[in-house]
């Protein structure tokens, strides 16, 4: 076991993937000598060379579009989009090409590539550096969308995403990059499937359904609730597409109450999809409506108001109170 930050765990996972498979290559802006603006790729260009850790021109559509060609040429590109808000120039390539080449080619082609995107707020950044665009991608058939919430998952999930035969959008919660955790870097295989949700904390009174940066927020909320005699279960979805319905439904059937928590705006966010699935499958087990604690339906606001915008422990517990009051 090693104690690593999420950033170091991602770095270690990428290093292991590069070492294990000569077809894996990384591409993105500033990922070489600088090691990326978040230092996720630090040292990898020195270790694996410029052909495998590629500083690209400053053009996101180009980064993703050329990765498609590399993937079709037998490589496994792992591209870095520098910040969430800069993925949109690549949106056409991702939505119209990456997601559907398998479908368009009648299954003859696959695009085994990973698009890494640091996402979410809470770091006091300027515009376009704090977005949560996961729903756009989860809405798109043909893409797999995952997000890690702790260093161990970061280490394993990035390797699993790279090994996956389909394109994976890999969201990294940038405000948690410096969170530390235990990582079994010497284990031979990941403890869980990439598409399996994890019960981050067991509880009986209500279920907090969340992912990425909000997992820690929900765990903190559950710990605070325990002091008031409330037992909250926290589910870390890990995969946003596909969703691990079985784990979600089993938890809802145990507790009967659900609060979905995410930073992204409310309308048509992951919470909407989860609420729809839960009411369809667990209608008679629900003791209260499925509630959502999310960002408001606003563009991500100026950083000095982000504490009001982002779901926090108090807002989560407020929603739990509302759920339990039913």
């Amino acid at each position: 076991m090693s104690t690593l930050t999420m950033a170091k765990a991602l770095n270690a996972g990428l290093r292991r993937a590069l070492a294990n498979d000569p077809k894996v290559l990384l591409a993105g802006e500033d990922i070489g000598a600088l090691g990326g603006v978040f230092r996720i790729t630090e040292g990898l260009q020195a270790e694996f060379g410029r052909d495998r850790v590629v500083d690209t021109p400053l053009a996101e559509s180009g980064i993703v579009g050329t990765a498609v060609g590399l993937a079709l040429g037998g490589y496994k590109p792992v591209v870095e989009i520098q910040f969430d808000g800069f993925v949109y120039p690549a949106f056409d390539q991702i939505v119209s090409q990456v997601s559907r080449l398998h479908f368009r080619s009648h299954g003859r082609l696959s695009v085994p590539m990973v698009v890494r995107i640091p996402y979410g707020g809470g770091i006091g950044a300027i515009e376009h550096h704090s977005e949560s665009p996961e729903a756009y991608f989860a809405h798109t058939p043909g893409l797999k969308v995952v997000t890690c919430a702790n260093p161990s998952d970061a280490y394993w999930m990035i390797q699993q995403a790279i090994a996956d035969p389909d394109p994976v959008i890999f969201f990294e919660p940038k405000r948690r990059y410096h969170d530390k955790g235990e990582v079994d870097v010497d284990a031979s295989a990941a403890p869980d499937s990439l598409y399996q949700a994890r019960i981050a904390r067991h509880g009986t009174d209500a279920t907090l359904l969340t992912y990425g940066p909000m997992v820690r927020t929900c765990l903190d909320a559950a710990a605070a609730a325990e002091a008031e005699g409330r037992s909250l279960e926290v589910i870390d979805l890990r995969s946003l597409s596909p969703i691990d319905d079985a784990t979600v439904f089993a938890s809802v059937r145990r507790t009967g109450r659900v609060v979905v928590v995410h930073e992204a705006a409310r309308t048509l966010g992951m919470g909407a999809e989860l609420a729809a699935r839960i009411q369809a499958e667990c209608f008679y087990e629900l003791q209260a409506p499925v509630l959502r604690v999310t960002g408001y339906d606003l563009p991500y606001p100026p950083s000095r108001t982000e504490h009001s915008f982002l779901p926090d422990l108090d807002r989560v517990l407020d929603a739990v109170d509302q759920s339990l009051a039913h």
Binding site: D297, L298, S308
Partner: peptide, 23 residues
């Protein structure tokens, strides 16, 4: 001047829809 998030809700559209008034 420190901003107030409340002031953001009326900036999204020229004509603020009902759901943003509610939020």
């Amino acid at each position: 001047v420190e901003p107030d998030l409340a002031d953001s809700f009326d900036l999204v559209y020229t004509d603020t829809p009902e759901h943003l008034h509610r939020q």
